[in-house]
Simulated scan of single mutants.
Amino acid sequence: MEKIYPCLWLYNQAEEAARFYTSIFANGEIRETQYYLDDIHKPKGSVLTVEFSIANQRFLLLNGGG
């Protein structure tokens, strides 16, 4: 059976939230950060998503705006 892969929608704090969550839980690690490639939605180079894990559970944070 596959695990659930939660995606949390944030406004502009995905990077900060990932650092926070991985610092307070054991076995936390930031796995990958992706960036906006154009400036249609956010400035080019802004953080789009951050994938992290806590105790082998993956999470995705999305800077979706509002």
Rank of each mutant, 00 (worst) to 15 (best):
A26V: 03
S53A: 12
L61E: 05
T22Y: 04
G65D: 06
N12R: 04
I40D: 13
L60Q: 05
L10P: 03
E16R: 10
E51P: 03
G45P: 14
T33W: 07
Q13D: 02
P6A: 02
L62F: 11
D38A: 14
Q34V: 14
N56Q: 03
L48G: 08
Y11S: 07
L62R: 09
Y21S: 03
T33K: 08
L61Y: 09
K3P: 00
F25S: 08
E2Y: 02
Y5M: 01
M1W: 13
M1C: 05
I30H: 00
T49R: 02
Y36R: 07
N63R: 02
A17Q: 14
W9D: 07
L37T: 12
A26W: 06
M1P: 15
R58Q: 00
L10R: 05
A18M: 09
L60W: 01
Y35W: 10
I24V: 01
V47W: 12
V50I: 06
L60R: 06
Y11Q: 08
L48C: 06
G65Y: 11
S46C: 14
A55W: 10
L60A: 00
S23G: 13
Y21V: 05
F25P: 14
I30R: 03
N56M: 14
N56S: 11
R19S: 01
G28K: 12
D39N: 10
Y36D: 06
L61H: 00
P6R: 09
D38I: 10
R58Y: 07
Q13L: 11
I40N: 15
N56L: 13
L37D: 15
E51L: 02
N12S: 08
A17W: 05
Y21F: 07
G28R: 01
G45Q: 04
Y21E: 08
A26D: 15
I4G: 08
E29A: 15
T49N: 04
